[in-house]
């Protein structure tokens, strides 16, 4: 008991010391995170000569704003951006629609083998993508669509995001079944039930998944690298990859940073606009069930 009292007495000073230590650590980590980002912006606005200054210059003097336009015009990035957006719109739309339907089936209907199939679905989350990479390529080659956008978006219709299905199923299961039953009594058809009763309920999770899927399609690299060969069809990320130049070639750092910033921009904007969904989504990835 005495000990507890003694601890209580010294608490204010102890707490202040603790707070100072914690703030110091937080600020140190923030610096480690922010310095590379600051350096990215700084490099983007430097002249070629300033980049190689030693010791390095922190703030570009003067800032070369023309780098932005020059970098953008160094390759047909206009086209690449259109391609990326095309892939994003088609992929996200198909994925969200098909996954909602599949998740609804898993959440609301019973059928033989359902549990085994669902476990199978979950286990595909742990399947490394590269095991199926080569046969998948061969399939698309047989169909004759290598070099087209098709391999990057068509499969989205088959609900290829097991994790999103899982998320959505959890969400559907949280919606009271009485809503369904009432609709059944009214004799509502399956599509009507789905669109009028379920859809309004699941808007938040649809938003979260769309945000995530957007980011996934926009930043996807391996798929475009393998399937797209025509420069006309490059995505932003693939364009940046080839913009780096050859293995032993020094890239144009300032321009490259401009492009990297532009590629990061949608993710950053989405993050601040939909921070809640983003964090909810990431949190679900480590789901406790």
């Amino acid at each position: 008991m005495e000990k507890a009292v003694a601890l209580n007495k010294s608490k204010p000073t102890r707490k202040i010391v603790m707070d100072i230590i914690i703030y110091a650590i937080l600020i140190a980590i923030s610096a480690v995170i922010l310095i590379p980002l600051f350096w990215m912006i700084s490099t983007a606005l430097k002249s070629n000569a300033d980049i190689f200054k030693w010791p390095p210059e922190w703030i570009p003097n003067p800032p070369h704003w023309e780098n932005i336009a020059n970098a953008w015009n160094a390759m047909p990035f206009n086209k690449f951006l259109q391609n990326s957006l095309f892939i994003v719109v088609l992929g996200v739309t198909a994925e969200v629609i098909s996954e909602t339907i599949v998740a609804y089936g898993f959440a609301r209907y019973d059928f033989p083998g359902k549990n085994i199939i669902f476990i199978l679905l979950l286990s595909t989350m742990m399947l490394p993508a590269h095991v199926t990479l080569i046969p998948t390529y061969i399939i698309w080659n047989k169909i004759g669509l290598i070099g087209e956008f098709d391999p990057l978006v068509l499969r989205a219709w088959t609900a290829w995001g097991p994790f999103y299905i899982f998320l959505m199923r959890q969400f559907f299961m949280g919606i009271p079944k009485e809503l369904d039953d009432a609709a059944d009594i009214d004799g509502a058809s399956l599509p009507r039930k789905f669109f009028q009763i379920m859809l309004p309920q699941i808007k938040p999770i649809l938003a979260a998944i769309s945000v995530f899927a957007f980011r996934g399609y926009f930043n996807e690299f391996q798929g475009p690298l393998i399937y797209l060969s025509d420069k006309e069809k490059y995505t932003m990320t693939l364009g940046m990859y080839f913009f780096m130049g050859g293995v032993n070639e020094a890239p144009k750092w300032n321009y490259l940073m401009v492009i990297a910033l532009i590629i990061a921009l949608p993710s950053i904007v989405l993050y601040f606009a939909a921070q809640k969904y983003f964090i909810e989504g990431i949190t679900f990835t480590g789901l406790k069930d």
């Binding site: 980590i29 923030s30 995170i33 922010l34 590379p36 980002l37 350096w39 990215m40 980011r215 926009f218 930043n219 690299f221 990320t237 940046m240 990859y241 780096m244 490259l256 940073m257 990297a260 910033l261 590629i263 990061a264 993710s267 950053i268 989405l270 993050y271 983003f278 964090i279 990431i282």
Partner: peptide, 16 residues
Amino acid sequence: IFYLTAILPDSAVAII
């Protein structure tokens, strides 16, 4: 600030 690193695309992170 801490979450920022989670949302940056891999390609941009690699370039930095």
